[in-house]
Each structure stands twice: as structure tokens, then as C-alpha cells.
Design a protein around this nucleic acid. Structure first.
Lengths: 234, 234
DNA sequence: GCCAGTTTTCGCCTGATAGGCGATAACTGG
DNA sequence: CCAGTTATCGCCTATCAGGCGAAAACTGGC
């Protein structure tokens, strides 16, 4: 059992702490994660999550935002939430580094200018990643998929305005299975997650009825579905 | 923007990191949290979460387990999961200390021997707490209540065997509102979260039909309710 | 032993919501 | 004007949560 005098910060040992970001976005109909290719050992040429150290006066959220700025325009990140902290002592072979990961989401219509070492990778065809970044990516994808079903988190993946067909393709890509436009519309409108605008979209070359343009009612995260059971009495 | 050379641990600054535990349990029909009373400044005489520093070779989970051992028998903690990491630079007035909190659950039938400075406090009548511990407690209670509805996490609050009436009282206390035994039984048995045993319980002094004794089918966390919407096709 | 009181358990009903499918609306180009 | 295409709506079903009252199975008292 550790002998640290409890809660006395002078006696608490310290060691490096880094922040990482799992930035997810739907690119060309596939859910993708933003990775950069390492140029140095360890894990040279493996793909890694963006991130880095935390300055002594920085909040974690500010730190990850700063590191992300080197990869994408931060204003393009529509949602950012903390995921988990990993502490395995050998997760970095050089020295112990604690890592706190964030989940970031980028709308499908923004096309960030990526540095040469950075690219989007489909989450269903991931390359081998550096360190334990694979676990963070799995956790991020799992959380996104769960929250798509009971929150309005889709706003952070979608353009400001969209048709139902576009939204169906977006959700199908993010969830990894096909959805019907009928039911998607019904569920999201009843919950007041999305709502129609006055405008309609021009049909494509092959014709068809013009689609109503929808938008998300709110662009901040809210829980929309009280869980299915054990509800309070009316 | 920070200038840290990315991902080079030598250049990452370090500062103290502590672990905290929000240990929840139902005591005498009320959801309670385990707190200890600080004897020293800062926040002298305020109530605080158990926890402390992390040794250089310790995983966070091991560290919090070690610190908890000073308060309760660790074998009495039926479930332990990571909650969140707070990084506000002034959360400890002495120096910057990052804190990672865990959620711990203790079954209602175990009665740990508590040290003199430690006690259970009802979460609906919390005293003023030290540091930012209040936020961690809120997050822990919120997560427990959500997971009671879509996972089998109740196993960590309940005795090994129980009657439906006991389980209803337990869930009502944990959730903060009354439940009906009828519906609770139906939902949890259909999901195969709980199941009947062969045994029945003796009625109380005032008589009544003997109740079937139930138990949780699994005693590890599993998600039992696929979220209510956007399911994959059959 | 029977009866009144108590507690548990079961069956039946209702309401809400997800989801499937086909019909109809509203556009295209030829 | 028509065939083709896409979007939208209405109707149906299935599942599940939840309410309520009846019946089951015990108690203690007379």
C-alpha cells in the first residue's frame, strides 16, 4: 500500500501527462479518424492520434485545442468532450506518460487543410496505430455510436442544413449499418432534434421530388431520450 | 499555441496527479457517498472524497484501490469504473493537482468498519465539500442513475440474494423516486438481469405471502438495453 | 380451524414509440 | 404528356413500459 501522506500535493510524485484527440468525421460516406504519421522512433511510421504535452497553467481542454490547431482549424471542431485517462506504466516505452483523450467531431462538409503527415483513416480499415491509441479510437467510436441514439450529437457531424437523404447517409456511415429515411425522420423530428426549414433542395440530375431542407434545432449537446426503463412516475 | 515538441515525453512538463473515489451505497434507504473530514488546511473540517497520490509505477486503478483500503475493505467494493479527470489549475489552492475520479459501489448489506474521520452522507443532503469534489459526486450519481436503467449495474448495490420488495426499495433510494415492484420485476427479468432462485423469504411479523428470493444473473457490468432508437435492421 | 389483515404475484389492459411497407406527391428529362 | 426517379406520408405491426385490480399465500387472533 502506498505511503503517500494523503492529499498533500507536495508529497505527490509527478510525471508527464499528455492529451490526445480522437477526431471523428464522415468523409465520402465513411466514418474516419484523423491520424498523423510518426517520423521518429518509437513507433516510427506508425499512425498516431494528434496531441501532446500540457503546459503548467493550461487546462486539459485548452491544451488539446492548442495541439489540434496544428492539424485542423479548431473552429471546424463542432464538439469536444473528454473520453478517458489511461495510465498503463508502459504505454510509452520511453517513460511513463499519462494520457487523457478527448473525442472531437468535425462536420462532414468542412474540408480542413491537413498537414502533409496527417490524413483521415476509415475506422473500419484502421492501420496499425502507435502506443495504445487503438483503444482510445475504439472507445471514441463506441461513445459516438451510442450517443447518436439518445442525444442530438449528430449536429456535430452534419452540415448546418441538409436533406433527409443526406442525413440518412451520414448516420448510416457513422453507425455502420443502413437506416431507413422514414424512421430516421420520424424519430428525430418527434424528439425535436431536427426540424424542417422553409427551403427545399434542387433534385439531382436524375430528377425526383425536391427534398425539404432540415436543420438541427440545437447545436449543443443535449440528452433527448430518457432511458427506456425505470422512469419516474408521471 | 504551446510550443512543446510533439509527443516527446522529455519535454512534457509534469505536475502532481491524484486519484479520488466516489464510493456510493444505499444506507438505510438512502443513497450515500463515503466522505472523510479533513483535519488540516486547506478546507479544514470540510468533507472530502477519499484518495491521494499516484506512485510512479502504479496504475490509476491500483492507486485508488490502495487509498480506498484505508477507508473500507476493498473486497467490499463490488464495482469500480473511471469517471473523469479534472484539470482546473486552481482546483487545489496550494499547487496544481490533476485529479482522476473513479466511481465505486458497495452493496447495501455490507457494513464496512469506517475510521473515525469517515462517514456515509446522503447525496440529497450533502455537506459543503472540499475542493471541487462536489462536481465529481454529481457526476457519479448521474452516471449511476443512468446506468441503472440500461445496464445490470444494480448488482453492485444489492446483496447476493434479495426479495423484490427489497430490490424496489434499493432502486427507489438510488434513483430518488418510487418504483413499482410489478414493473421492476417484469423489466429486469425479461432482460435477464435478475432471476428467481428456488428459495423464498420468511414473511415479516405482520404476515403476508412469502416472497421469492431473486439474484442477479451476472455480477459484472453488461449493457442490457440496446438504446431505444436507430437500431440496426433485424 | 376460521377469519381478518398483510404482502406478494399474476393477468389484463393501456399508451408510447420504433420500425416496415406501400401509396402518393413532386420533380426530372425526353 | 409520359416514364423514371426521389421524397414524403399514412397505415399497420411489434415491442416494451407501466397501471391496476384480482388472486395467492402467508401471519396472528379469536
Amino acid at each position: 500500500m502506498p505511503v503517500t501522506k494523503k492529499s498533500d500535493p507536495v508529497n505527490i510524485p509527478s510525471y508527464p501527462h499528455e492529451v490526445l484527440a480522437v477526431v471523428l468525421s464522415v468523409r465520402d460516406g465513411n466514418l474516419c479518424v484523423l491520424l498523423w504519421r510518426r517520423g521518429q522512433s518509437p513507433f516510427r511510421y506508425r499512425w498516431a492520434l494528434p496531441g501532446g504535452g500540457v503546459q503548467p497553467t493550461e487546462w486539459l481542454r485548452v491544451a488539446i485545442t492548442g495541439h489540434l490547431a496544428a492539424k485542423v482549424d479548431v473552429r471546424e471542431v463542432a464538439h469536444l468532450e473528454q473520453l478517458a485517462t489511461h495510465s498503463a506504466i508502459d504505454r510509452d516505452p520511453r517513460t511513463r506518460v499519462l494520457a487523457t483523450a478527448y473525442l472531437g467531431l468535425v462536420p462532414s462538409d468542412v474540408r480542413p487543410n491537413l498537414p502533409a503527415d496527417t490524413a483521415w483513416h476509415r475506422v473500419d480499415e484502421l492501420p496499425r496505430t502507435a502506443f495504445d491509441h487503438h483503444y482510445f479510437i475504439d472507445a471514441a467510436v463506441g461513445r459516438l455510436r451510442a450517443k447518436l441514439s439518445y442525444t442530438n450529437i449528430g449536429f456535430a457531424l452534419a452540415p448546418a442544413e441538409f436533406t433527409i437523404a443526406e442525413l440518412r447517409d451520414l448516420f448510416s456511415a457513422a453507425l455502420g449499418y443502413e437506416l431507413s429515411a422514414t424512421n430516421l425522420t420520424r424519430v428525430l423530428t418527434r424528439r425535436q432534434v431536427i426540424g424542417p426549414t422553409e427551403r427545399t433542395a434542387r433534385p439531382g440530375q436524375s430528377g425526383g421530388r425536391p427534398a425539404t431542407v432540415y436543420k438541427f434545432v440545437a447545436r449543443e449537446l443535449t440528452v433527448t431520450d430518457p432511458f427506456a426503463v425505470l422512469r419516474p412516475p408521471r
